[in-house]
Nucleic acid binder design. Structure first.
Lengths: 159, 159
DNA sequence: GGTGAAACTTCTAATAA
DNA sequence: TTATTAGAAGTTTCACC
C-alpha cells in the first residue's frame, strides 16, 4: 500500500476535521488563511485517494447503558477454522472488533456489553461457535483513549 | 450513569449520522419525512445530553504507511504503579488505547506502527517504563471492524 | 496548484401551531 | 413537540491567476 503524501495544509485541515467533522470549511479557510474553495478541493482529493474513508459519530455508550468492555482471546481447535469462526464472530453485534493474531491466541476480540450478565451471554456465544476450543476473558476496568490528533502529528512529522 | 431514552426518530437520525456525519440535515429530514428544524433540535438535544460526544474522521492508516497493529499486555511489578504507568503509556502517541484490566495482564493496550521495526521501538518504550515488569505482544494479522450501525440497532432494540 | 465571486444549498432560530 | 419560514451561513463550481 503506497504512502500518500500530505502537505502541511492537508495536515492542518485533517487536524480540524478530526476534532469535529462538521466544522464549516469557511472556518478552516479563515484559520489557515486560504479560500474555502481550496479546502473543498483538498478534502475531496483526500477522500478520492481514500485517506479519508469516512466520518462517524463518537457516542457515549455508558450513557446508553453499555458500560462494560472486555477483551476475549479465542483458542481454536484448528487454525484452518479461522475464517469460519471469524465470520461467526462478526455476526455478533456486541463484538466491536476482531483480530486474527499471532502469539497466545488465534483470534482476539473486543466486546461491549451492558453489564457482566450480558457479557457472560456474549462470551458463551463465542464459546459456542463451532471450532472454538476455549476463550480467555480480560475485563476492562478503565479505558483511556489516546488522542487521534496526536497520532496524526506523529505520523505527519515522520513524512 | 443513567440510560438515556432515544425514540425511533432519534435512532434513525443517529443511523444516518453514524454512516456520514456530514450528511445534510435536509437529507435526513426528507428521509424521515419530518422537517430539518426538528432534526436540528433533536441532534442538539442528543449533543447536550452527551449521547453524541463528537465526531471524527475515519482515516486509512494503511495508506498513511501505518499498517502494523499489535496488542501489548503489560505486567507490573506492583499494581500500585498502575496510574503512573498508564500516564507514561498515554504519552506515546502510537498507543491508540489502553485499558486497566483484570485477568492475565495489569494493563492492556493497542499500538499502531509503521512496521515491525517501528513496533519494536514502541514495545521497548513500554518495557522501559518504570514499574513495568514485562510485556507480551500479540500481532494482528488481520483486523475486522464490526458495523457501528448494527451495534446501535442492537442497543436500540433492547430499550 | 490557488482565488474570488456567483449560484445554489443548508443551517438555525424565531414564531406559530 | 413539531412545522414553517426567512435571513444568515456554508458549499461548490468555474473563469481566471
Amino acid at each position: 500500500m503506497a504512502k500518500f503524501k500530505l502537505d502541511e495544509i492537508d495536515h492542518q485541515i485533517l487536524d480540524m476535521l478530526i476534532e469535529n467533522t462538521r466544522v464549516p470549511f469557511t472556518d478552516i479557510a479563515k484559520n489557515l488563511s486560504i479560500s474555502a474553495g481550496t479546502i473543498h478541493v483538498r478534502v475531496k482529493k483526500m477522500e478520492d485517494a481514500g485517506i479519508i474513508k469516512g466520518s462517524s459519530l463518537t457516542l457515549d455508550y455508558k450513557k446508553l447503558g453499555y458500560s462494560f468492555i472486555a477483551y476475549v482471546g479465542i483458542f481454536l481447535q484448528n487454525t484452518s477454522q479461522t475464517k469460519f469462526v471469524l465470520e461467526r464472530i462478526n455476526e455478533i453485534p456486541f463484538v466491536t472488533v476482531a483480530h486474527i493474531t499471532t502469539g497466545k491466541f488465534n483470534i482476539f476480540c473486543k466486546i461491549r456489553a451492558k453489564n457482566t450478565e450480558h457479557a457472560k451471554d456474549i462470551i458463551f456465544m463465542l464459546d459456542d461457535i463451532e471450532g472454538v476450543y476455549r476463550t480467555e476473558t480480560m475485563i476492562s476496568l478503565e479505558e483511556s483513549l489516546n488522542d487521534k490528533k496526536r497520532l496524526m502529528h506523529s505520523i505527519f512529522n515522520d513524512m
